[in-house]
Simulated scan of single mutants.
Amino acid sequence: MTIRFNLNSIPTECDCPSDRRVIDLLREDLGLTGSKEGCGTGECGACTILVDGVPKLACLMLAAQLEGTQVETVEALQQTDQGRALMTAFAEEGAVQCGYCIPGMEMASLALLRQEEPLNREQIKEGLSGNLCRCTGYVKIVDAVERAVQECCKI
């Protein structure tokens, strides 16, 4: 099956089985290894990508679901002011340890930053609730997102 979609703002066409998981398509076929497969069952959020601006779990999506969509992966994070603000905040706030969960955390955070309304700390926690971190814990991650919100939204 031929699947056409925009990947990190680049028109992309892939020939693959329609039942190929998106995480496998990204990592194995397209060489984008930033998204991680943590659990493979949708429990951890390490594989979070944005599809049409909405956080999705790449381990639970099939390649056929990408047809006609806009897909963003962590590899494109530095292409936007919000993405750069997130990366800087995560680094400077000490929100990264092993780094395994961070791509998914940053993608979920990017979706939060793009919301129309300003976010408070509780909304950030709620927005990241599907993403697990076993090393850093959540305080520094929430601090980093809060900092990025303040920088991007001038709150």
Results as ranks from 00 to 15, higher is better:
Ile3His: 05
Ile10Pro: 03
Asp15Ala: 15
Cys16Ala: 14
Ser18Glu: 13
Ser18Lys: 14
Arg20Tyr: 09
Arg21Lys: 11
Val22Gly: 07
Asp24His: 14
Arg27Val: 09
Asp29Thr: 14
Leu30His: 02
Gly34Ser: 09
Lys36Gln: 07
Lys36Tyr: 02
Gly38His: 02
Glu43Lys: 12
Glu43Phe: 12
Cys44Asp: 03
Gly45Arg: 03
Thr48Lys: 06
Val51Cys: 15
Val51Gly: 10
Asp52Phe: 01
Val54Asn: 10
Pro55His: 03
Leu57Ser: 14
Ala63Asn: 09
Leu66Pro: 12
Glu67Asn: 14
Gly68Cys: 08
Gln70Leu: 14
Val71Thr: 13
Val71Ile: 05
Glu72Phe: 13
Thr80Ser: 15
Arg84Gly: 07
Arg84Cys: 09
Ala89Thr: 09
Ala89Ser: 15
Ala91Pro: 01
Glu92Gln: 15
Glu93Phe: 10
Gly94Asp: 01
Ala95His: 01
Gln97Ser: 12
Tyr100Leu: 12
Met105Tyr: 10
Met107Leu: 11
Met107His: 07
Leu110Asp: 00
Ala111Gln: 00
Leu112Phe: 06
Arg114Ser: 12
Glu116Gln: 15
Glu116Asp: 13
Leu119Val: 02
Gln123Lys: 13
Ile124Asp: 01
Glu126Lys: 15
Glu126His: 13
Glu126Asn: 12
Glu126Val: 11
Gly127Val: 01
Leu128Val: 03
Leu128Thr: 06
Gly130Glu: 03
Asn131Pro: 07
Cys133Lys: 05
Cys135Ser: 08
Thr136Ala: 08
Gly137Gln: 10
Gly137Val: 08
Gly137Trp: 03
Tyr138Trp: 09
Tyr138Ile: 09
Lys140Tyr: 01
Ala144Cys: 08
Val145Glu: 06
Ala148His: 04
Ala148Cys: 06
Gln150Ala: 13
Gln150Phe: 00
Glu151Gln: 15
Cys152Met: 12
Cys152Asn: 10
Cys153Trp: 06
Ile155Tyr: 03
